[in-house]
Amino acid sequence: MELEEVFSSKLRMKILKLIYNLGSLNITDVARRINANFASTAENLEVLEAEGILQERVYGRIRMYRFNEGSAKAKAVQNLIEVWEQSK
């Protein structure tokens, strides 16, 4: 996916900010906190995972998402959010 495509979604940016602030979260929790429905939240989380920004961990029936520790893209996104939030 092209850069502009990944970051053109308001929902995806909300998800990234949320996970940056709270660490790992499951899909239902993400959907509830950004006030979106489950299906589109899950879909966007999968996009971010496919891009290597987030990683999924499965604990039995629970899927939790967090930033992909080994990914340069994830580090770059976290840096961007950090700078953005600090300069508010």
Binding site: G23, S24, N26, T28, D29, Y59, G60, I62, M64
Partner: peptide, 16 residues
């Protein structure tokens, strides 16, 4: 894992 969901999981699942 601070945001691990509180409800709906059995003792065995949380153990695991």
């Amino acid at each position: 894992r601070p945001n691990y969901p509180a409800r709906g999981y059995s003792v065995e699942e949380v153990f695991s």
